[in-house]
Design a binder for these strands. Structure first.
Lengths: 208, 208
DNA sequence: GTCTATAATTGGATAGAC
DNA sequence: GTCTATCCAATTATAGAC
């Protein structure tokens, strides 16, 4: 399967294609690829199955469109550019909190699950997600650590490695727990504590 | 679905049940739950489909048996008890290497993928895996860090948190990359470097 | 573009003979 | 316990009318 591609002509929001995409998004994120039928999507979008096929040539293509759409929407806004590398503890706490808030969001966890589960069948979709998500976030972190190294607030011999380790500490065990559904959706106190722990350990290892 | 349970009577290794289980293991780990049919499993085990059903009451049950079996076999041997908490750098390197060797093994990555992908349908299987794998490994690490704290080689205010952070640093980005199949199966040099980096950062944060 | 109706195939599970 | 043959439900995809 290649990169998702609409079949019908241009169409504004509120059109059938949007409705179908939104219905497919809900269904796939909630139940996965295999457990969702085109019938179910058509039903949820209140259109006929033939109409679904008029807009998307196959179930695989519709799936690809959903993945690309959600990835872009969720990760597009993540940035560390506005943060001050001098006030390092506060900035790291902010960024860790934003990071966790994003990667632990139920929708993002669901997206992770579905892509990981189908990576054998749809390797390109995993690439799309990876580039839009983890890679983009790592680049943002990396740029921040480069600035912090230059400002002398942190000792950063390898910005990329620092970014990876910071992200790893932030994810900690809690991210895996989310993927394996070992606990309820994470509340904000747990999230704050996790962020603070990650920052504390990271600072002990990298502070000037 | 509950914990897997054989249907047929006692049977030694080399019996049909073993053959079927092995075939199902190969198939599920390679292609996931949804993409594998009972026909395919029967074919790969060189028995009829009716024979498969004589030993396992349903596809779900067979799947559960596979997950429990592989989890136990792969994680059962992980231990940190023999390691010396005084020679801390060497011990941590050993344990990080063992840890990565295990969690990055293709079979274990495949197991992760399949469980994460089906966690919505089979939450109990995720629990079985979690207890046999991540939880067991964390307990081993935690016990080691408790000893290291007592020996005075590390400063460990919270052994459990230390264990989680060490595991997180070891997994780093490389584990996620494996799950999303962003790169080829990890070779042993990459693995050694990842282990060394994790240990170095951890020591800067926790060494006495 | 959208619908109803249906084709074509697959897949989980079982009946009945041995 | 094991096989062959089959049932039945579900699913992807399309034909043809409007």
């Amino acid at each position: 399967m290649s990169v998702p591609q609409r079949v019908a002509g241009r169409e504004g929001p509120g059109g059938k294609a949007e409705t179908i995409l939104a219905a497919a998004e809900r269904a796939f994120l909630a139940r996965g690829f295999g457990a969702v039928s085109m019938d179910a999507i058509a039903r949820e979008a209140s259109v006929s199955k033939a109409t679904v096929y008029a807009h998307f040539t196959s179930k695989e293509e519709l799936f690809g469109a959903v993945i690309a759409h959600v990835s872009e929407r969720r990760f597009g806004g993540f940035s560390a550019e506005a943060l001050d590398p001098v006030d390092i503890a506060a900035s790291l706490t902010t960024i860790a909190t934003r990071f966790l808030d994003l990667v632990l969001a139920p929708e993002v966890i669901a997206l992770n699950r579905i892509i990981i589960g189908e990576v054998t069948r749809f390797p390109v979709l995993a690439q799309v997600f990876w580039t839009a998500g983890p890679e983009r976030m790592r680049e943002q972190l990396e740029a921040f650590f480069r600035r912090a190294g230059a400002a002398g607030t942190l000792v950063i011999p390898d910005p990329r490695q620092a970014a990876e380790q910071f992200a790893a500490l932030a994810r900690g065990e809690i991210h895996l727990r989310g993927l394996f559904r070992v606990e309820e959706p994470t509340d904000s106190t747990v999230l704050s504590v996790a962020a603070a722990n990650a920052v504390a350990t990271f600072l002990r290892a990298f502070q000037a």
